[in-house]
């Protein structure tokens, strides 16, 4: 029993170390890599442009439902004027960075893990190595750089569209005065909140994309499955671990920053 536990712990520690090495090597490899800019642009397209619709839709509905629920609860206390405060603070402090990161994991992270897994499977990564290319600089660095840029941007989109959603359900569907809603929004959020939100988003981006890349990149190391099964197992694992990491990291960052 103890031996199994120890073995398991050792494996986790070793994998964490390997993951740390993988990430730092990828970041270091970015320096002076040829045509890095073009690959970063492509990664921004994959994580950014392609995921805008999903971010917009999820953000809008999050705002709508926050406005609806918040209005009914606050109205009981006669404080429906605080709806803007509730919606904006909830979005900026927690929901926007977390939900945007989860959506991006679902769309861009899973695609990345699967793509790298297939590239590993079809010997494309080995081919890059035999051609003398730095695989980390070629495949991973642009993704990480793009993530640090894209996640805050998507989070900002999420916030703004969410505030619009809160306005729609509070002032268009329900009876709140638009001026009351917006002035509460403008006066509730402090610069500190926005800064915290952006820092969170950037950290989530780096962590999740690194986790997804790591799992896809090492799809061949799975002992339980091989071939297409290994790719699917790696993708699932990438998404699950990334999602858990987002929520855990959110708690840690919040407790540090607040």
């Amino acid at each position: 029993m103890t031996r199994v536990l120890g073995k398991y712990t050792l494996r986790i520690v070793r994998e964490l170390g390997d993951f740390g090495l993988f990430t730092s090597r990828s970041l270091a490899a970015a320096v002076g890599s040829r045509k890095l800019g073009r690959r970063v642009v492509r990664s921004i397209y994959e994580q950014g442009v392609r995921c805008v619709p999903v971010i917009m839709i999820v953000g809008l509905f999050t705002g709508l439902v926050l406005g609806l629920q918040g209005y009914y609860v606050l109205n009981k206390f006669g404080s429906s004027g605080l709806l803007g405060t509730l919606v904006s603070l909830t979005l900026v402090r927690e929901l926007a960075p977390v939900l945007a990161a989860l959506m991006l994991v679902g769309q861009a992270g899973s695609a990345l893990a699967a793509e790298l897994g297939i590239q590993r499977n079809s010997e494309q990564i080995d081919a890059l190595e035999t051609m003398g290319a730095d695989v980390h600089a070629y495949l991973i660095s642009p993704r990480l750089i793009a993530a640090v840029l894209v996640f805050p941007i998507q989070t900002a989109f999420f916030c703004l569209i969410g505030l619009l959603g809160g306005y729609l359900s509070g002032s268009v569907v329900l009876a709140l005065q638009p001026g009351v809603y917006w002035s509460a929004v403008f006066h509730a959020v402090h610069p500190v909140d926005v800064r915290e939100c952006m820092i969170k988003a950037a950290i989530f981006g780096l962590l999740t994309i690194a986790i997804c890349a790591y799992n896809g990149f090492n799809a061949h190391r799975r002992t339980s499955a091989s071939g297409a099964r290994a790719v699917s197992a790696s993708t699932t694992r990438a998404v699950v671990i990334s999602s858990i990491t987002v929520l855990a990291a959110d708690y840690v960052i919040t407790s540090f920053l607040v």
Binding site: I153, Q154, A156, F186, V189, H190, P191, V194, C197, M198
Partner: peptide, 29 residues
């Protein structure tokens, strides 16, 4: 390639405006 760069450029620009709006307008009252 140029089209891709254009789309990405628009995305980044819109994103920066969104971040700036959030930080300066909503954040600072």
């Amino acid at each position: 390639q140029p089209k891709l760069e254009l789309v990405v450029g628009i995305f980044v620009l819109a994103g920066l405006i969104a971040v700036a709006y959030l930080a300066l307008k909503i954040g600072a009252g």
